[in-house]
Design a protein around this nucleic acid. Sequence first.
DNA 1: TTCGCTTATTCGAAAAAATCGAATAAGCGA
DNA 2: TCGCTTATTCGATTTTTTCGAATAAGCGAA
Lengths: 118, 118
Amino acid sequence: MRRLHHPNPEDILLTDVLYALGDPVRLAIAQRLAQKGALPCCELGVAVPKSTLSHHLRIMREAGLLHCHKEGTQHINSLRRADLNARFPGLLDQILDVAMMASQPVERVESQPGEAEH
Amino acid sequence: MRRLHHPNPEDILLTDVLYALGDPVRLAIAQRLAQKGALPCCELGVAVPKSTLSHHLRIMREAGLLHCHKEGTQHINSLRRADLNARFPGLLDQILDVAMMASQPVERVESQPGEAEH
DNA sequence: TTCGCTTATTCGAAAAAATCGAATAAGCGA
DNA sequence: TCGCTTATTCGATTTTTTCGAATAAGCGAA
């Protein structure tokens, strides 16, 4: 398997980060990782085919948004919070804050059926 | 000419805003408008063909990022700062802040030759 | 009104990117 | 080695982006 590419912190581009987060599936992944810390691909909780998920993770990884390392057969993903905060102070937290506030449908995939939100 | 569509403030989606700013040309336009207030298309200072510029402005307008109104033969564009701030408090300013900090090449097109930036 | 000029959108074809099923790779344990 | 699990890569289709050419629309002068 080819080695996965991660940009150096100083090479992370703002437009790449914004582009990576400018998709409902990828924003949901970022939110999930922010909450859970580190997760393998299969536990990201997004309803897309495996090949599409791989593509989304690549976009995020190459944008510098997340780090991925292998553990056995699994690929563990986590947000590069420190690197992002060094390069763009406060940005990621601000985005995750407003994302939490104004959740979009795709981000509520696992809400409890009993909790109505009339 | 068809009427230009602008989403209502409450219909603005975070992913649309991030996607709209996740392109070097569009981020440069947002920065320019943040600095100058309101500008017609021809004074946005981006080096792309007219038809491409029209497309970029449409993406931004339909994302809720900017407002466009006609004045004579010109279309005046301005950021929807109040609407965006109401929907996603602090987000736009945060993005413009870090964009200013870490300017990408396309954003420095008009820097003064005399002003060194060491 | 009609012509010429300016500003900007829309059309249409080509290039680039996203999607997703099928095939492949790679680790683990029996 | 075989079978199972996890995830990437391939390849074809769909969607989006790009940009020259055509169109639209306002303005001022003849």
